[in-house]
Design a protein around this nucleic acid. Structure first.
Lengths: 207, 207
DNA sequence: GGGTCGGCTAAGCGCCCGCTCAGCTTCGGC
DNA sequence: GCCGAAGCTGAGCGGGCGCTTAGCCGACCC
């Protein structure tokens, strides 16, 4: 009963790294529930129910409800960072790499909106150690984008007064897509990605 | 023990419309608690404790915990809408009005971050009727910003392909300030407001 | 085909939640 | 100086929470 690959672009099956199968079903159920109602408003009974199991089954595969959130958050941040790194370290000018980074980052936040919502908005529900680990990943995300902006400024492609502030604004814009994007709305993830890449290039004074 | 006015600009005392005094103290305590931990993770005992009262006192002034959130959300959205309307309907070119709207809207989201955080991120915790009321206010917020952008396009000041999409991005950028802004961080609300006004003018191709 | 073990469930423990209620205090009206 | 109303508290109810435990079931090993 294996499902198809997520995209034609060779993207790997989401949550494919989570085994066994029952653990993955529980984790996917948790992502949906956390995204819909928030971590604190979601019960372990709800998660188990969505996965077609009893509440106790959850504790075979995860020590606590928080560990579920931690696993989701970790995998999601790894994926987001991977997307940005691929774009940031690709070939092409800073302008091309920034447009690529923004459009692919936004596509992920829109297309996998439930995951992105949990990943981006439930950080505070984690305990101190887990949160510290995730915050470190976010700093790497920030560094990737700032690197492209700095490259563009150094190459004379961009006109940016406040590099850290502009980097913050770019990431903020992309991340917030997970809050408002509506699957039933008028825009596809690809369209939002293109629009946002254009807006961000304007923000850095490219072209 | 009355505190001073919030700003030198004649802004009214926040939550001044909430009476009696005990109700206001409870509401302010709820704003802080909801902002720190989220609505669902906040207990009525926590709110009452912060206000220096017993848990039962809450129910003298508010029917339920949700009514507290509703009052906060309603007052906050009214204030945000008021800020935008003042800027949108002021004098000056579309460029000046957009810069004014963004900088004042951002100043509010940064300077009154705890309130803005609750107002912008706890909408889903409201029941259907209350949520519908708030969603209607948000549509008015959106209409104000879209109006300025349309004015600018009509006047030839702006170069915008996708007006609804760009409006969405502008508001998204401003609202997300409430998520990342840190009072102890390196930027003042005024600095972020100026930076963001500049970035938004670039997004619409002004100047 | 008996033994072992991972995966799962039914039942339920202890706790804390939102909320209620009887009763106490304070205070303005007359 | 008594009365009713308003504001507030201590105690606690019913229920749902995260999580645990005892035990069942089927797959695999020899």
């Amino acid at each position: 009963m294996s499902t198809a690959q997520e995209t034609a672009g060779g993207e790997t099956e989401p949550w494919g790294e989570v085994t066994p199968d029952a653990a993955r079903r529980l984790l996917v159920a948790a992502v949906e529930a956390f995204a819909e109602r928030g971590y604190h408003a979601t019960t372990t009974r709800d998660i188990a129910g969505r996965a077609g199991m009893s509440p106790a089954a959850l504790y075979i595969h995860f020590r606590t409800k928080e560990e579920l959130l931690h696993r989701i958050s970790r995998i999601g941040h790894d994926k987001a960072l991977d997307i940005l790194r691929t774009a940031a370290r690709g070939e092409g000018s800073a302008t091309e790499r920034l447009a690529d980074a923004v459009s692919s980052f936004v596509r992920w936040h829109a297309g996998r909106r439930t995951t992105a919502r949990v990943v981006q908005y439930e950080l505070d529900a984690l305990g101190p150690e887990a949160r510290a680990e995730i915050v470190a990943l976010r700093r790497q995300v920030d560094a990737e984008v700032r690197g492209i902006v700095e490259d563009g400024v150094a190459a004379g492609e961009f006109d940016v007064r406040d590099v850290p502030g502009t980097t913050l604004a770019i990431l903020s814009l992309c991340v917030d897509v997970a809050r408002w994007f509506n699957v039933d709305g008028p825009r596809t993830p690809e369209e939002v990605g293109e629009l946002y890449a254009d807006l961000v290039l304007r923000m850095v004074g490219a072209g």
